[in-house]
Write a protein that binds this DNA or RNA. Structure first.
Length: 390
DNA sequence: ATAGGGCTAGAC
DNA sequence: GTCTAGCCCTAT
């Protein structure tokens, strides 16, 4: 069962889609044994945490922690420390320092503390360990930042640079490479293996050809909600062209299983996230054009005073709440022009109902092009008409 | 998000 | 005028 725990955890952490899973609480809940065969799982966990931080737009000293752990794990695996990791570390370290350069004068804020903490302590330790993360580029930045502390001109110059963009680009590149290197998860490999073993089973050919008569309203009621078996169809291939039929079956098999586990795991993975106890120095910065948020920052040192900068959002349309409005007697917007359903739309709707039942939203989402100008309610109404308006 | 009652434009 | 597909509104 322990193996299964690991596989499931790995599978969840590997998925890059929402809902997001947080590595730290998931792993502490599962308490994986601290042995070498967990390296892949731990790697996955670190990458997941980095990805999550990136999604939240957080590039802080917690990110440096993660990158250092990543290096350690890669060494355990005897992997090469790639250029992308070195660059990502370097630019993240600079970005972390730069956020303390908001005062006009170097000595006014906590720039000196940041130099001490990040460059002398943290990177000093890396130097002692002769880490590959200490590159010429990093050393150059170290010397520039030290100079900046003495010389106001250099301080100003660095202060006005947009480091964040570089840090994020390198981190993205790193993630892309590392996720690719990890390949598919153990759970997926196993599922694929098992599928191949029973490839000759009747499962694959369960559903015969499309024997549907176009616009045959009488038949519609009979096909409603087939409840599940052999749901793979041609349309799925249309929407996921990168998967072959075998892979699709594997994906399909995993899907139901996953939704079940997702419900069990979600509460575990989401607790402890606020406040983020895994990263002590976490300071969130919502992405904004060219460090505009830096000037008014007032962080008190590297404490966990997470100060969220508001994202810039467009001003919402004012709502018409005037009491003078005549209310429902007056149509708030003109009626949409009537548009008859095409046979293509009807066919898609039928396929959709076979596939998802009366989940109009799912049906609409799985035929985004066909139903581009049909709402979920339209689908429901049409289906009701097809059934004969009971 | 979905179900179901009600309205209306357009075909006849 | 009737009929009804498509659209809208509201309760759940």
């Amino acid at each position: 069962m322990e193996v299964m725990d690991k596989w499931v955890a790995e599978f969840f952490l590997r998925r890059q889609l929402n809902p997001r899973v947080y590595a730290f609480p998931l792993l502490s809940a599962l308490k994986p044994v601290d042995s070498d065969d967990c390296v892949k799982l731990k790697l996955t966990a670190v990458l997941r945490d980095i990805s999550n931080s990136m999604i939240q737009g957080t590039v802080d000293e917690g990110m440096l922690d993660l990158l250092e752990i990543l290096e350690k794990l890669l060494l355990q695996e005897h992997s090469v420390i790639m250029g992308s990791l070195k660059s990502a570390y370097c630019w993240t370290a600079v970005e972390c320092t730069l956020r303390f350069m908001w005062p006009v004068n170097a000595s006014d804020g906590f720039f000196g503390d940041a130099l001490e903490r990040i460059w002398r302590n943290r990177i000093g330790t890396l130097k002692e360990k002769e880490s590959d993360l200490v590159t010429r580029e990093l050393l150059k930045w170290e010397s520039d930042l030290n100079k900046a502390f003495e010389e106001p001109e250099i301080y100003q110059k660095i202060r006005e640079t947009n480091i964040r963009y570089n840090a994020i680009s390198h981190l993205n590149q790193l993630l892309k490479e590392q996720w690719a290197l990890l390949g598919c998860s153990s759970l997926e490999s196993e599922a694929r293996k098992r599928f191949l073993k029973r490839k000759d089973s009747p499962y694959a050919s369960r559903r015969g050809g499309n024997r549907e008569k176009a616009n045959d309203v009488e038949e519609v009621g009979g096909v409603e909600n087939p409840d599940g078996v052999g749901k793979v169809n041609e349309h799925e291939q249309e929407h996921e062209p990168s998967l072959n039929k075998g892979e699709m079956l594997v994906a399909r098999e995993l899907k139901d299983f996953l939704l079940e586990i997702q419900r069990l795991i979600d509460p575990i993975t989401r607790q402890d996230q606020e406040p983020n106890n895994a990263m002590e120095h976490s300071v969130d910065v919502t992405p904004q054009p060219d460090g505009a948020n830096r000037t008014d920052a007032e962080d008190s040192e590297g404490t966990s005073s997470s100060r969220r900068v508001r994202p810039h959002l467009p001003t919402p349309e004012p709502l018409n709440v005037s009491p003078l409005k005549k209310g429902r007697l007056e149509r708030p917007r003109p009626r949409r022009p009537m548009k008859f359903w095409t046979s293509e739309e009807v066919a898609a709707l039928r396929e959709g109902v076979k596939e998802y039942g009366k989940s109009w939203k799912d049906i609409k989402n799985s035929y985004p092009v066909v139903f581009a100008d049909r709402s979920e309610v339209d689908l429901k109404d049409k289906w009701r008409n097809l059934l004969g308006r009971q």
